[in-house]
Design a protein around this nucleic acid. Structure first.
Length: 745
DNA sequence: CGAGAATAGTTTTTT
DNA sequence: ACTATTCTCG
């Protein structure tokens, strides 16, 4: 039934779906139905062209995008979706390397080092080649190495390219870092790509295997791929030439992570026969939002002209609000959310659920003020990212034990937990152990093994270790060996629980850590998450779990919950859409960020970031800024973002504070911010309080229990209550419309 | 060796 | 302001 797959598509979309032979470049503006085109194209390949899903690979930017693709394909393909290869570039490569990585010297059970792990090993590499980490920032070296790998420059390649003293230093560290990584049997994120590339390049039979399998290869978010990723895609589609890439240069926001926008240009030279299809009709946003976005992006010079348009109506104007500081900025957001979500009775609004709303910001640190206010007023929210679950200390500690069970030669993990809880293995002992490992060219685990077999005592003067230290080390080795052998027969959950107990980690948390309870809860949550792997056995479960843990991102965890407001960075918001969007911190040095001020091309990326934010909104957008912003404990005056100036004034409406003379005198701090709209057009209607609460009323709160209303005051269109609760919950300020409050007689 | 104090560095975005 | 690392003493 080809017709139903094409029904409801506009001519361009239809063309994109039907063009299945040869290379295709789809330039897809925001909200242009890109996901729809990708899923329908895959379904078309399967159902109309008779291609089995097994022969199709589609790589996306996040696991979430992949999951969503699967979800939307399921009704079109049924069970067959399961044969499709869909995932991130990194997970695709991890799969290839698990299967065939032995050709490039990889153990099947290699671990994937995340950022902090990588920095750890890098620091060690630096000390070993006498580069002072005080003088050269490990972070800077890491970024240089990562940049090299993203362009497929191995140690040798980098050697020929270096042209500064810094490069010289990086080269020395890079060389040692690679040696250590090989020794401990691990790879970093960039290795996943580069090693896959090398595998395909040097082992044609392996490459052919994948080339034969993947007759169709699709890449989403192509503007954010790096050179290595594009090279792999080219290797795979060398014979078939069926490479379909989808992207939007205006939404390229990851150049700092070595994404190379030039891939789009290269694509057109590498595949001169490629068909280029532009999707320019926007189905997402109102005319007003689109106009604003367009006028912001138009100021970029390095740009392929593209004209977005929509049949949607103008909708409501954009609201621009300036608060006194980030706290007032956050309060405005909260109050506006209250207006937008209030029960329809008595309000013109009341159209939205909390899940329809997102608050977006440039840097994670900005979520703090927003969270504080949400907590204070009882607004349910979820923060995407920030303190990442998998990067939490206790989670990483347990992961380290698991990794050691899978591969005891993983030095970074070993270092992490060898003395956690304390086992009498201090820095001196560790230094000596590292020296031994280095001299023998082995992992630290093997070095301990050496100590054990040569017997403690008898004539090993070269080993400057006390018998007690040797004892402690060999005990630790037995602990790891024990976990490793148990991992063969226990279920993953059992293994994790065993690890927490047998290593003494649980006791350690309970006794020595003031946040122990909280950490144990996190561990519990972590252990529970392993339940998904229950159908796999022993080692396989462990390996699969560890891989997942290394490759998940925070957006992946994002849940579309109707009852939660989403707090998210602009970067993470890429690819998402919300009926209502608040962009906070529209200030110079924040958006655009201060680090982008010097470089014009970085400034253009900031502008694209702003464009991405604006185009996430379907119906309403609020642009906020604070007159003063706290930074490093200091509060400093700010300047409005240049991007605000680029939005035509006739698209904007600015609410002013209650009795302040004008919006332009923000320093005047007045009582509770009573919001009134300047042109009076959409002034929020005061609530009709049928069940109003007054001072002295007894109330019951869902989580705080019983309390007494101390005072109530009108705040915007809502009522702010000050309630004293019993049982040590203290005095809280709550918004009537959110607080789960009941009157008690 | 370990615990607590002093101190430095941190905040751009993340697979 | 906050935290992560380094320093100092018991």
């Amino acid at each position: 039934m080809p017709t139903d797959l094409l029904a409801g598509l506009n001519p361009k979309q239809r063309e994109a779906v039907e063009t299945v032979d040869g290379p295709v470049l789809i330039v897809a503006g925001p909200g242009s139905g890109k996901t729809r085109v990708i899923t329908h194209r895959i379904a078309y390949l399967v159902r109309v062209c008779g291609v089995t899903p097994y022969r199709i690979a589609a790589v996306t930017f996040t696991n979430k995008a992949a999951r969503e693709m699967n979800l939307r394909l399921a009704p079109l393909l049924g069970q067959a979706v399961r044969d499709l290869t869909a995932g991130t570039f990194h997970s695709f490569c991890a799969m290839v390397l698990r299967r065939d990585g032995d050709s490039v010297g990889l153990d099947r059970n290699f671990a994937i080092y995340d950022d902090p792990d990588q920095i750890d090993l890098l620091k060690r590499s630096m000390t070993e080649v006498n580069v002072d980490p005080k003088h050269f920032h490990p972070r800077a070296v890491q970024s240089a190495i990562s940049g090299a790998k993203s362009q497929l420059l191995g140690v040798e390649g980098f050697k020929d390219r270096r042209d500064s003293y810094f490069d010289e230093v990086v080269f020395r560290v890079y060389e040692r870092y690679e040696a250590l990584m090989t020794r401990v049997g691990t790879v970093d994120f960039d290795d996943l790509l580069m090693k896959t590339y090398l595998l395909f390049e040097n082992f044609p039979d392996v490459a052919d295997k994948y080339r034969n399998r993947y007759v169709h290869f699709m890449i989403d978010e192509f503007q954010d791929t790096n050179v290595a990723q594009y090279a792999i895609a080219r290797q795979l589609s060398r014979e078939s030439r069926n490479l379909c890439v989808v992207g939007d240069p205006d939404q390229s926001i990851y150049s700092w992570r070595n994404a190379d926008i030039r891939n789009i240009l290269s694509f057109q030279t590498d595949y001169p026969e490629a068909k280029v299809i532009a999707l320019e009709e926007n189905y997402r946003s109102t005319q007003t939002i689109l106009n604003a976005a367009r006028s912001v992006i138009a100021a970029n010079t390095q740009r392929v002209e593209k004209d977005l348009w929509t049949k949607n109506g103008p909708g409501v104007p954009i609201t621009v609000f300036e608060g006194y500081d980030e706290k007032e900025e956050a309060q405005f957001v909260i109050k506006e959310i209250a207006n937008l979500t209030k029960d329809a009775n008595g309000s013109v609004d009341g159209l939205y659920a909390l899940g329809d709303i997102a608050v977006m910001y440039r840097v994670n640190a900005q979520s703090r003020a927003l969270e504080d206010e949400c907590l204070r007023y009882g607004v349910p929210y979820q923060v995407v990212g920030g303190l990442k679950f998998y990067l939490r200390q206790e989670v990483k500690d347990l992961t380290a034990y698991l990794r050691l069970a899978a591969n005891p030669h993983d030095d970074v993990s070993l270092n992490r937990v060898i003395n956690r809880p304390t086992r009498g293995i201090g820095q001196r002992t560790l230094d000596e152990l590292m020296r031994l490992a280095r001299d023998a060219g082995t992992s630290m685990y093997t070095a301990i093994e050496g100590l054990a077999t040569s017997g403690d005592g008898a004539g090993i003067e070269s080993v400057a270790l006390a018998p007690r230290a040797i004892r402690a080390l060999t005990d630790f080795k037995s602990l790891i060996d024990g976990l490793a052998s148990e991992s063969e027969r226990l279920s993953l959950i059992e293994l994790m629980e065993l690890a927490v107990e047998r290593t003494g980690y649980r006791r350690h948390l309970l006794e020595d850590d003031e946040r122990g309870e909280e950490r144990i809860e996190n561990i519990q949550e972590y252990v529970n998450s392993a339940g998904d792997f229950a159908d796999l056995e022993g080692r396989d479960a462990l390996n699969a779990f560890l891989e997942k843990v290394s490759l998940v991102s925070d957006v992946d965890e994002l849940e579309e919950k109707a009852e939660l407001v989403t707090l998210i960075t602009l970067h993470q918001a890429k690819g998402l859409e919300y009926p209502v969007v608040f962009m906070v911190g529209m200030e110079e040095k924040l958006l655009p960020h201060s680090r982008s001020m010097e470089d014009p091309s970085e400034m253009e990326e900031e502008r694209r970031l702003c464009y991405v934010g604006l185009t996430r909104a379907k119906e309403r957008i609020y642009l906020l800024r604070a007159f003063r912003r706290g930074l490093w404990g200091r509060s400093e005056p700010t300047l409005p973002s240049r991007f605000l100036n680029d939005i035509p004034k006739d698209l904007i409406i600015s609410p002013v504070r209650g009795n302040s003379r004008s919006a332009a005198s923000p320093a005047v701090r007045l009582g509770p911010a009573r919001t009134r709209f300047a042109n009076g057009e959409r002034a929020p209607t005061p609530p009709v309080d049928s069940n109003s609460l007054r001072t002295g009323d007894k109330v019951r709160h869902a989580s705080f229990g019983e309390g007494i209303v101390m005072s109530s005051s009108r705040s915007g269109a809502d009522t702010e209550l000050t309630v004293a609760f019993k049982e040590g919950h203290g005095v809280k300020r709550l918004l009537r419309s959110f607080a789960p409050l009941e009157k008690v007689d």
